[in-house]
Design a protein around this nucleic acid. Structure first.
Length: 647
RNA sequence: GCCGAUGUAGCUCAGUUGGUUAGAGCUACUGAUUUGUAAUCAGUGGGUCGGGGGUUCGAGUCCCUCCAUCGGCUCCA
């Protein structure tokens, strides 16, 4: 009677098993140690519980903690465990969603009038550990819609009821572990005992269904692991990440500050930050000059009428500082540079021979970001954009877009930026005329061209439908802060809307007026976000060309001061940024000071060096490199700088 | 903007259940020291405890309120 099924494994091998066997039992048949590690299984193309009975021939892949799907199930099951603990501790609370996330899991709960504190988290953690130790199995229960509704109506959980109402009968399942039952499509790990280490990380408010109009629930974040050591490692990594947080390093390295009296989101760049800005601008200006850009300067404010022309008012008004009125006219602080640049384009008649026209400016813009959004340098209210607008014909568009893209890649190479994602945002044709300009041909043409350019330049990218700008498709570069927040670092946008609004034209070879296409591009984003990112990227140890102080000169004793001054002078002659760390403190202390300041090079000079015209070179993070002829090492540094800045 | 937490010298932090002149290290300043690859020694200065209001005989410590920061949510042309 025992029917056999054929199971195909990822390596192509096949084995027969009695029907009704579960992936977990199959794992046990292969090896007991494997069985202990299996969390879920990919059955044909779907990830399912490892305790799913198999009744037909299948392809099977056993998934463990080492697989992303394994981790996701592990954390999803942990979220259920959190809910179980919460229900045990605070009977009667209501449950929202409780999914796994990239690093851990959360559960949204309605605690009524109860407030949770950090101390409560420890209590909940203990309860979770206690429930985990019971090693209860996760059990799947397929259930009808009406039965499901009945259960949660009886229990009095409106959020679950609302969720069930949106599901179709026949695709609803519950999962139970111990005495706790939750609506869930799964899959789950076999039992709670797999969860050995738990850390609840924080409490936050979160709107039900992510809608600010809905009630705000309490979200409890946590993370869990199959071994205590994994949790320890995770916490250690987090600590290391915090060490390179740009807000901490920015203060320690004297790069920027915020001041209550100046205002939130309005950074003050200290001299060291000023150097970073100078160098970035030097790089950008050189790069843009070589790429045929022209440079302009425009005011920080403009009349209301211009923003009516551009269409930013009233649509974007909430993100702009409120207007100021002079002589009966309203002026706005600019939130973007494009309108000013369009005016420069329109300042004279343009011929097809003038195109492409590439107008660049490190423009300062002001945006009224919500107070809760501000985040160090990464999200501010005053920012300096590496902005430019390229005005071109349709025929020139692909080539211009490609050139911009290549500029991105050149920058990324210089900075060694490897962890990023290019997001290609396209429009939804069904929403043309409402969310998007109704210019089907241009959408089609530019989207195709952008896609082709991205593929040809072999940049991995993700295409996100229905995320384009109102006026055209765009490519954004996404990066992450050390604490894992995602930001758009750079952006490259196509615009066929504003040229129409501003009535921009050029005369083609047949003497007919035509509308140019505009490309908005900011490969280095804003100084604020880019430098915030760089601080974290380099952990504050900037490469020579960027470093605020490039070389520290350390005389061993007072009698070497004269020689130190001579070395200092040689460095300055080559326009290197230097600092003399005098001799009041012992040399070890001064080396420490320079190391903490993350100065790339130290030149230590004593009797030996003064006698033979050398310096003892110490590189930040690497240590003593030995003595070198002063001229030779300075030449090396100058060469290093020239690799990026060209001089 | 919403939920929650936090806010003590320039920086990092300690300040028991509210009780005499609020502490430490680093920094700064002064003096001594003249040093060979990650912290020389001594002395001095510096906070009224984020702002305002209140409770109390008495508040850094309790309450209210405003501001800022932090963690999320929402937002992000």
């Amino acid at each position: 009677m025992s029917q056999q099924i054929r199971v195909t494994f990822p390596d192509g091998s096949q084995r027969s098993f009695p029907a009704g066997i579960t992936p977990l039992e199959i794992a046990a048949a292969i090896s007991p140690s494997l069985a202990k590690k299996v969390l879920v299984a990919r059955i044909d193309d779907t990830v399912r519980d490892a305790f799913t009975p198999l009744h037909h021939d299948v392809t099977l892949r056993l998934l463990t903690w080492d697989d992303p799907e394994g981790k996701a199930a592990f954390w999803h099951s942990s979220a259920h465990l959190l809910a179980e603990a919460l229900e045990a501790l605070y009977p009667g609370i209501k449950f929202g969603y409780g999914p796994p996330i990239e690093q851990g899991f959360y559960y949204d709960v309605d605690l009524g009038s109860r407030r949770l504190t950090e101390a409560d988290l420890e209590v909940i953690e203990k309860k979770m550990a206690e429930l985990a130790a019971q090693n209860n199995n996760y059990v799947r229960i397929d259930i009808s819609k009406s039965e499901a509704l009945k259960y949660f109506e009886q229990k009095g959980d409106p959020y679950k009821v609302e969720t069930i109402l949106e599901l179709n009968d026949g695709e609803i399942s519950f999962y139970r572990q111990g005495n706790f039952v939750d609506l869930c499509r799964g899959p789950h790990i076999p039992s709670t005992g797999y969860i050995k280490a738990i850390k609840l990380t924080n409490i936050a408010g979160a709107y039900w269904k992510g809608d600010a109009k809905n009630k705000q629930l309490t979200r409890i974040y946590g993370i869990s692991f199959p071994k205590q050591k994994d949790l320890d490692d995770f916490l250690h990594m987090q600590e290391l990440a915090r060490q390179r947080d740009h807000r901490k390093l920015g203060k320690e390295l004297g790069i920027f500050i915020f001041d209550d009296d100046v205002g939130p989101g309005l950074p003050l760049w200290l001299p060291n930050g000023g150097v970073l800005i100078e160098q970035l601008e030097k790089l950008a200006k050189k790069t843009e000059e070589e790429a045929g850009y022209v440079r302009v300067r425009t005011p920080h404010i403009a009349k209301e009428s211009m923003y009516l022309t551009s269409g930013h008012l009233p649509y974007y008004q909430d993100s702009m500082f409120p207007p100021m009125e002079l002589e009966g006219i309203r002026y706005y602080l600019k939130a973007m540079n494009c309108p000013h640049h369009h005016k420069i384009y329109a300042a004279e008649p343009r011929s097809y021979r003038d195109l492409p026209l590439r107008i660049a400016e490190y423009g300062t813009v002001y945006r009224y970001e919500q107070s809760g959004e501000l985040f160090g340098l990464m999200r501010v209210r005053c920012m300096n954009m590496n902005d430019a607008h390229i005005y071109c014909t349709e025929d020139q568009f692909a080539e211009e877009f490609r050139a911009v893209n290549e500029m991105y890649l050149r920058y990324f190479k210089i900075f060694g930026i490897e962890k990023y994602v290019m997001r290609f945002s396209t429009h939804d044709p069904a929403k043309r005329g409402q969310k998007y300009l109704d210019l089907p041909e241009l959408w089609q043409k530019t989207e195709d061209m952008v896609r082709r350019v991205l593929i040809e330049s072999k940049i991995p990218f993700v295409e996100v439908p229905d995320e384009a700008a109102f006026y055209g498709p765009k490519v954004d570069v996404q990066i992450w802060s050390v604490i894992g927040r995602e930001f758009t670092l750079a952006t490259n946008q196509v615009d066929f809307g504003q040229p129409l609004r501003f009535g921009l034209t050029y005369i083609d070879r047949n003497n007919q007026p035509q509308t140019p296409i505009v490309i908005h591009r900011a490969p280095l984003g804003t100084h604020e976000r880019f430098i915030g990112f760089l601080i974290e990227h380099y952990a504050g140890s900037f490469p020579l060309w960027l470093a605020p102080v490039q070389v520290a000169v350390l005389p061993v004793a007072d009698r070497h001061l004269e020689y130190a001054q001579k070395v200092l002078h040689q460095l300055k002659q080559k326009r290197l940024r230097v600092q003399l760390l005098g001799s009041d403190e012992k040399i070890g202390k001064r080396i420490r000071t320079a190391e903490i300041a993350k100065i790339p090079y130290m030149f230590i000079v004593g009797d030996r060096e003064a006698a033979d015209g050398t310096v003892s070179v110490r590189q930040h993070g690497k240590g003593d490199l030995g003595s070198m002829a002063t001229d030779a090492i300075i030449d090396q540094l100058v060469k290093q700088r020239a690799e990026v800045l060209g001089d």
